[in-house]
Design a protein around this nucleic acid. Structure first.
Lengths: 177, 177
DNA sequence: TCCCTGAGTTTGGAAGCCGGACTCAGGCTA
DNA sequence: TAGCCTGAGTCCGGCTTCCAAACTCAGGGA
């Protein structure tokens, strides 16, 4: 059983990418993370077409990553703004990982455009990958993937034991040489 | 100076999203990470249209995330396969962060479709966000963003001190309430 | 000579993105 | 009371991607 034998759409990466895998969604979330919450402000800051922004926001609300909450400024009628939900906030590691990669590989000579610090202690923030034993996982560290309980075989490939949902959990080496 | 006053396209997240922000690129990388390296295998496993796959692979090579290396099976002519470069391998935290979010928020009842372990010690792997002092950064921990050396003001907003590239590094609270 | 295979390219229709114009609800102004 | 303004969208025509299916191309084998 190789990785290729499993259904590629039943994968947490695939499912997450389905939610936020287009040119704008991640940038909308980034701005909401940074405190931009109103339609007009998002539209102006991102330079996104308005109808596309409306569709993205609706989709994000639908997916439960942001919520649409009413607000009222003095002497104006009730309007709506967008705030992260808990599920949305949990995407921070994704954004930080993207940020770090961009800082390393897509900086111009001047240096990174922004730096993030822990508000309480002022120390810079970074994303780490570790195993439960505490070993740091670098880009060349080998990982092993085991099909979990929710895995499914690809439509085309016959299971080793017809009837058993997830065939023997043979390990799949990850990260190519 | 608020976050909204800075040019949204000069941002490492934006630049990274530009490289891999469409429905397929991250999934192609995921499969290459998992050892699928040939055009036909990628095409079959992902179910992506062939022309789109060709374009994505060419773009990823162009961006330096994968390289196109010749191989030859006995009795066949030379063909090409795709392997991660170092820059590509450094995207692993991004994929792992996506994986973790999907595992938490888009699993079906059966459980996660795949689990990853450190090949050497067998312990499960996870993505952590920490500050340099070692404090763990959770989804509600407040962060502070300071404009770095490469920041640029948005075209529309006038700088506080005309002439200075990055205006005074006022801090921007991140993560909305 | 013909057939097969992997790795694309071409093609025509469907879907998505863009900028700009338009709508809609309510408060403010005259 | 009519008219104006503003934020938050929706609508529209043109242009660019996406898709599936058919086609091409280079070499090895029968």
């Amino acid at each position: 059983m190789k990785w290729a034998d499993y259904d590629s759409t039943v994968c947490s990466v695939a499912r997450t990418v389905e939610v936020l895998g287009d040119r704008w969604t991640l940038l909308v979330l980034r701005d909401v993370f940074n405190g931009i919450r109103r339609f007009a402000d998002l539209s102006a800051h991102l330079g996104i077409a308005r109808d596309v922004l409306a569709k993205r926001l609706a989709a994000l609300v639908e997916e439960g990553l942001i919520s649409r909450v009413p607000y009222q400024e003095p002497g104006a009628r009730t309007r709506y703004e967008y705030r992260l939900t808990d599920a949305g906030r949990e995407l921070r590691p994704v954004l930080l990982a993207l940020l770090e990669w961009g800082d390393r590989h897509r900086c111009d000579a001047a240096g990174p455009p922004a730096q993030l610090f822990h508000a309480e202690c002022g120390a810079p923030v970074r994303v780490e990958v570790r195993c439960a034993e505490g070993h740091e996982i670098g880009p060349r560290t080998r990982l092993t993937a085991k099909p979990g309980p929710g895995s499914r075989l690809a439509p085309g490939s016959r299971p080793a034991q017809p009837g058993s949902r997830s065939a023997q959990p043979a390990t799949v080496p990850t990260s190519s040489p």
